[in-house]
Design a protein around this nucleic acid. Structure first.
Lengths: 239, 239
DNA sequence: CTCAAGCAATGTGTATACATTGAGCCGCTT
DNA sequence: AAGCGGCTCAATGTATACACATTGCTTGAG
């Protein structure tokens, strides 16, 4: 693998786990030293992270770790909801053959089987994350809209914007469990709407689905213990 | 100005005006030579253009000029419409004070004054472009949604996605003039909807407004003479 | 004559050396 | 004593040199 790519991965994880703090100015020489690479691949990785939105260019050159207000996080989730809504509508309007919807149905069933248990352990949550991400990926693919897929991929570079962002941070509470149940019922309704070519309904459900994530965000922000379990929480500004 | 930035601007214009052809593989050494810079700032600019979507990474390293299918262009415009729809909705729901809407009203009036003339010369079209872009910028600002503004800005890096993309290429035909008239009436209705807090209506109008751009795209694609006047037309794949 | 192996050429990726810019500080002058 | 000017230092931006990989050609063997 190219060094610039492996540096990119390392830096991204350092930003998300708080090794590099929000707002922190990054010094190329010292970073290159820590990473045992020269400044050349490091700078390429920094430039990439800036484009992803995790870094910002400082006033007089160089980069700093970006920080996000709770408001910005909400906006990002709303944005994802809007784009997934567009995907859902286009998927429905395309009237895909049943075979293309089958993977979605199966994912709904497998998630159902998971959330059936009254208590979800770490492993179950991890599986939920996988299945949930797969559902959203399949949904986007159904829309058959490359520009949309790219736009969504860019937005999901921000850790809070991904569909499964709040799953892992939200364990062991009745309301959390209920949230997962409801989310999967929205998946089910989404598949139903697409099956019947109900574009407007599909779009509305996808948007409301993202609102559930917004509610989860609010809850997590109110509970420091849960906030700690949120990937990228170090980037959130105090409200 | 940093060399990497000026190289970026030059390369972007070369890509849009067809000096660099769609699909063309870019050779760093020869490009650096043509631009009289070393490969270092050149590579930074190339990386940036790839993130903007005008270049793509080639299989075995390096970059190539991207090309876009008509379908992709349509999708990009649809995307802009969807995001501007979200902006319009949020602007309406925010119930902004009249003073914040005043610039939009004035822009509508100034565009009205422009399109009142039966024939628009090059200069009038250029003014239309300026005013139209300003209208869309003000609309986004009204939504007061930084994440949305950033997402839109990224999409509009693609030349066809900008609100005024088709104005200049569409001169001297009755249907073109009608298109501009209709577009500004949509602006007017948009302001009205926002004024009265009609979020759903505002969103729908913004989307339909982008559909007008899609129709203009279709028209331009059917008329090679107009296609030539379209910024970035060199990047469009034969349908 | 054909196929394969190795070598050369070309181009990207990486390291390093050099240039430039800006900020902070010290000292000199008024 | 205060302010200005210049110097120094440090960090980014740029150029260049080097390393590595890939591709295509050439040469030799079968």
């Amino acid at each position: 693998m190219r060094q610039s790519v492996s540096v990119l991965l390392t830096l991204r994880s350092w930003i998300l786990d708080g090794t590099l703090c929000a707002g922190e100015r990054l010094w190329e020489a010292s970073l290159a030293d820590r990473l045992s690479v020269s400044r050349t691949p490091l700078r390429e990785a920094l430039s990439c992270l800036a484009h992803e939105g995790l870094l910002e260019r400082a006033d007089r050159g160089g980069y700093a770790v970006r920080s996000f207000s709770p408001e910005y996080l909400k906006q990002t989730i709303e944005l994802r909801g809007t784009l997934e809504g567009l995907a859902a509508r286009q998927a429905a309007e395309a009237r895909p053959p049943a075979a293309r919807l089958e993977p979605l149905r199966q994912l709904v069933e497998r998630i159902d089987a998971l959330v059936m248990h009254p208590v979800l352990d770490e492993d179950a949550l991890s599986q939920y994350t996988t299945l949930n991400s797969a559902f959203h990926q399949h949904l986007i693919a159904l829309a058959d809209n490359m520009a949309l897929a790219e736009a969504l991929a860019r937005i999901e570079h921000l850790p809070f914007a991904s569909p499964s962002a709040f799953v892992m941070s939200y364990a062991h509470s009745p309301s959390a469990h209920r949230s997962l149940l409801i989310a999967n019922d929205q998946h089910r309704c989404l598949v139903d709407a697409i099956t019947h070519g109900e574009g407007a309904r599909a779009e509305q459900i996808a948007r409301e689905h993202a609102r559930l994530a917004q509610r989860n965000l609010d809850t997590v922000l109110e509970h420091p213990a849960r906030l700690e379990r949120l990937r990228g929480s170090a980037l959130i500004q105090a409200p």
